[in-house]
Design a protein around this nucleic acid. Sequence first.
DNA 1: TGCAACCTACCTATCGTTAGGTAGTTGAAT
DNA 2: ATTCAACTACCTAACGATAGGTAGGTTGCA
Lengths: 191, 191
Amino acid sequence: MPKRAQKHDSTKHAILDVAERMAREGGYHDVSFRRIADDVGIKSASVFHHFANKEQLGAAMARRYSDRFMETIGDPRDPGTTGEEKLARYIKAFSHALKVDRQMCLCGMLGAEIDSLPKDVANEARRFFNLNIDWLETALTRTGGKTGKKTDIHGKALLVMSALDGALIISRATGDTSHFDQVAEQVSRLV
Amino acid sequence: MPKRAQKHDSTKHAILDVAERMAREGGYHDVSFRRIADDVGIKSASVFHHFANKEQLGAAMARRYSDRFMETIGDPRDPGTTGEEKLARYIKAFSHALKVDRQMCLCGMLGAEIDSLPKDVANEARRFFNLNIDWLETALTRTGGKTGKKTDIHGKALLVMSALDGALIISRATGDTSHFDQVAEQVSRLV
DNA sequence: TGCAACCTACCTATCGTTAGGTAGTTGAAT
DNA sequence: ATTCAACTACCTAACGATAGGTAGGTTGCA
């Protein structure tokens, strides 16, 4: 099988890192090849060696973010953890964005911009939300005694995700991280 | 008293209308003087006759949006309506953005971009969120029998706003307005 | 006459993108 | 072991388009 060039991959990752940071701060439209190149330490034309165009770069960036996010929150069917623990882990992922990364959730940002995104980027953003809804529905379904109706579970999944994504925006806008904590506390009691 | 020039005001309003639409679709960075001018039917240089620069235009746009939003949701102290009715009216304002305007909440968008906004624009976005939190706290406090602790009210206000702002993003991203409705239904039961 | 509300014409900076080139590496044939 | 073609990972230089912004002129109304 192909022995991948190491240099290629490390530069590619560096490009995605910088692009993601830019998109999580200022949105897709604020991502620029020249500023990416400056940060990585190459020329802007060289970015095209790794990504065909901005749309493909954006799509790869969103896909990588989704994959990483799903890996962070783990298996929603894991019998070793309770529904409460799974939800706590989900909340922690958003909390990490706010308090460690000090940035928006990438796909929250892309979701807000959805109407103005190139097709492939928009599709990746949509995929993120659908994956999250599925994950939450699965995690919230097998919660000990409380099983609840299917529609209830679906609604709760939507509420959890909405509240956390919104709380991220509000906390960052007001500059008060305790706003997120107060929302998270109420969300965690929904199980 | 100053007899305002009508032409000035109508053009100014037209500029703000177009700028707001652009910002609610693609964010602040996607707002452009040339595209505004094209839509309004003037030249881009003429926009500077009405607004000193992009930052001032952005700030005016956000301020106008906030003022209009606060007027829409009405007086949170109005003794003629119940807490439930006030909350329903608040939810309706977000629902209107989703289903009639088919756009993001302007300040939700600006909130997501907060780190990359010019100072004056960021301040207007912050102001919107603080006004909203205050409004919700007031509206939720005087709700018939249930008064609740002050910290509970504050937390509920944050949850309502977070959930609705997040639901707006998720509904638009997934293209399913029923997602918003399901969140709204749960939020309305928080009173 | 004076000012508001535009205009033309232009500036510099940056955008995504392309063409074409170069240094270094690799793998296979000579 | 040497040569050579192919390939990777970059580069320089530039394209046309667009960005925010400015100087100074024109027009029409009070």
